[in-house]
Design a protein around this nucleic acid. Sequence first.
DNA 1: ACGCCCTCCTGTTGGC
DNA 2: TGCCAACAGGAGGGCG
Length: 273
Amino acid sequence: MPELPEVETTRRGLVARVLDARIERAIVRNRALRWPVSTGLEAAIAGARIDAIERRAKYLLFACERRGHLLVHLGMSGRLWLVANDEPPAIHDHVDIVLATGFSIRLRDPRRFGAVLWLPAGAPVHPLLASLGPEPLTAAFDAPYLYRVLRGRSAAIKLVLMDSHVVAGVGNIYANEALFEARINPRTSASRLGPARCARLVEAVRTILARAIEAGGSSLRDYVAADGKLGSFQDTFNVYGRDGLPCVRCGAPVRAIWQGNRSTWYCVRCQRA
DNA sequence: ACGCCCTCCTGTTGGC
DNA sequence: TGCCAACAGGAGGGCG
């Protein structure tokens, strides 16, 4: 699924094309996503102007005038892009936001782990958003913060880094790549990272995410940007998916292990501890 | 509160 | 070629 860089790339592509556009109507072909798409969604957004498109963690938030926000999460297999209004839907094209510009924002999500929720203005902050950790590319995510949080966590650093309550938006690809960048073993207990390694990890997460956004994200299977273009960060993976290949830094083999039902890759020499 | 495991769903890939 | 198991970018929920 799209992680932070893919969602951010999607956001930027949409901002360039649909900001200030008027929503004519919504078409929901399948309401059975991660949570049911509310039956009131169509009426809630019909006729509204898209005033802003924001991102929090891996959530996209479309500001619909004073009415509220349309929240979209892409799950594991979601993509959100623009099609002409008369483009016929394919299987798994569950939602269209039909715009007055002649284009529609289309959501395709074969696995249906994604979400489309309506957040009315004035409602309390949605629980999904309320408990998120800081954005990794803001000043709130710094070494003292990370050190403070990790002290109380005995689980493996890779798993903690992927916990959105610790830091928002870091998924499997970028957790692997950031730990390589910071030369930290993914199995190391988070509580064993001192201030210096926390500082390195903060910088690594920022660097990797910024580079990935520059590259338009990573396209492995499903992901495309709002304009249909593929990302290219997958071409510069240092460890992700590189089981048995030589480390680009030292030549030692990259090893694959399992952590929490997810794949992890790391260099057996560069990331010894 | 935390750690660990399971779950939702479909498509693709690789081994036999 | 076909069948089947394993695996895939997420993350909430239940349990101990």
